[in-house]
Amino acid sequence: MEGFFQFLQSFDLGRQIYQTVFYADRWSWYLDGLKLTLQLTCGAILIGTLLGVITALFSISGFAPLRFIAKVYTTIIRGTPTTVQLLIMYNVIMVSSTNKLLVGTLAFGINSGAYVAEILRGGIMSVDKGQTEAGRSLGLKSWQTMLYIVLPQAIKTSIPTYTSEFIVLFKETSIAGLIAVTELTKIANMITSQTYNAMVPLIVSALIYLAVVMLLTFVFGKLERRLRKSDAR
């Protein structure tokens, strides 16, 4: 390790890397940042999925007020920038909260819920009307037909778009630094302000994002292939 550090010190870029990554164990800052980024993402996707499923069911409900609620929610969330939503959550709605991670998770979760709802609604719409008719003609109630016949098929077709929403969300958490959550991008900025070096911290964080996205893409791809196999086409 010592030898590697000496090698780094021997040229300019190496010195920059040493300063911003290895000096004073700064590499562990990136990892802490990544941890927060992942916490934000996972918390938000959980909230988003829950909200999304409920909203999607509202939006296809026969009861007009529920459809209206779903419409208002998805319209507002999809019609305003995530950054503004995050700031409103932090500075207006939850201004008394000291838990910034919670505020961020909620803001991203509520944001994601609107997109998940639309993804799932699309999936439900794509299920052939004959499926519902077949279920109802057997005497199944409307909710039973939805739960056992339509939803399983809708979820299956929604999964590719859902996983890309997960990836979008993961990258979008990079704005959480605005409310002082020390996620990966914020860490890069902090290191920059300490070292007066912008290039290396930003590129390091970019590479970390990229690595995680590639890993997620690989895992989700495998999952989708597995699901398709159960179709046994």
Partner: peptide, 12 residues
């Protein structure tokens, strides 16, 4: 019971 032109079996 009802039987449809396009079968409408549950593919999943």
């Amino acid at each position: 019971g009802m039987v449809f032109q396009h079968f409408n079996l549950f593919p999943h």
